[in-house]
């Protein structure tokens, strides 16, 4: 069996409180592995440390203890190694307001010094694929929330990353738009054979998207894990759903807030 694409070994992250009154633990000895091509949905209540785990994988913060490895490398210390290897779709679209839809999709390709003509063709193709043909020259303020999030998905896919990280990307959208984008997203991930980590706080969304669902307690540690696939029966799905509900409801009170 090939090496896991993402491996966390006893990862702990402790932050100082902004008011200077001591520390709080956002991630507590977290260990898990994600194989190539897997879509893993990470589930947990708000503030359980999902986003901190996400930022560790993205190399944006360094764990206080333990080891995080992505494609066999340290994502924080070997930051430049991951150029073009990780694509991120954030909770809010994070589009640059001064760039048009096309220029926003081009951003990653420009940072990676791609050939300008080829980069533009790629960006246009991704916008078309996500149903935004004709909106290339629109600025973000002229697009709806769903369209802006499509642009951010196009931006993440355009650099053809090995790993896609998604931090509750559809949580601010209406249910219909979120459902359509979710379906589209899973189809694109499967088509392009990416490994994806999808963070959400909705059980149904996690089960719709993930090959595997990890439910976190606060501070971030795995409280429940389930594998799902197309052949999983409705009754099994219902059982997993109930188990996750039970696990998340049983979370101890008075735990620390994550980041």
């Amino acid at each position: 069996m090939s090496d896991p694409v993402i491996r966390f070994t006893n990862v702990t992250t402790v932050f100082s409180r902004p008011d200077g009154r001591g520390d709080f633990t956002a991630v507590d000895r977290l260990s898990f592995e994600i194989a190539k091509g897997e879509i893993v949905a990470v589930l947990g209540k708000t503030g359980c440390g999902k986003s901190t785990m996400f930022k560790i994988v993205a190399g944006l913060i360094e764990p206080s203890a333990g080891q995080a490895r992505v494609i066999g490398h340290d994502p924080f210390r070997e930051f430049d190694f991951f150029r073009g290897k990780i694509g991120i779709v954030f909770q809010n679209d994070r589009l640059m307001p001064w760039r048009t839809a096309l220029d926003n999709v081009l951003l990653g390709l420009q940072i990676l010094d791609s050939d300008p003509k080829q980069a533009e063709d790629t960006a246009r193709a991704w916008l078309t694929r996500l149903g935004l043909s004709g909106h290339e020259t629109d600025y973000p303020h002229a697009l709806s929330g769903g369209m802006r999030q499509r642009v951010s998905i196009a931006r993440a896919f355009a650099v053809d990353p090995e790993i896609l990280l998604c931090d509750e990307p559809f949580s601010s959208l209406d249910e219909m738009t979120a459902r359509d984008l979710r379906t589209e997203f899973v189809r694109l991930v499967r088509q392009t054979d990416k490994t994806a980590v999808f963070i959400t706080h909705q059980i149904k969304e996690a089960m719709d998207i993930g090959d595997r669902v990890l439910a976190f307690h606060r501070p971030a540690r795995i409280a429940y894990e389930a594998r799902l696939n197309a052949t999983t029966s409705d009754s099994d799905r219902q059982r997993v759903h109930d188990d996750i509900m039970r696990v998340l409801s049983a979370e101890p009170a008075g735990t620390e807030q994550g980041v």
């Binding site: 930022k55 993205a58 944006l60 930051f79 430049d80 991951f82 150029r83 073009g84 990780i86 694509g87 991120i88 954030f90 809010n92 994070r94 640059m96 951003l107 990653g108 420009q110 940072i111 990676l112 650099v159």
Partner: peptide, 15 residues
């Protein structure tokens, strides 16, 4: 938010 998003592409300081 924009800083983190841009950093996720690993730009050089000049970029």
């Amino acid at each position: 938010d924009l800083f983190e998003m841009t950093m996720s592409f690993r730009p050089s300081r000049w970029t």
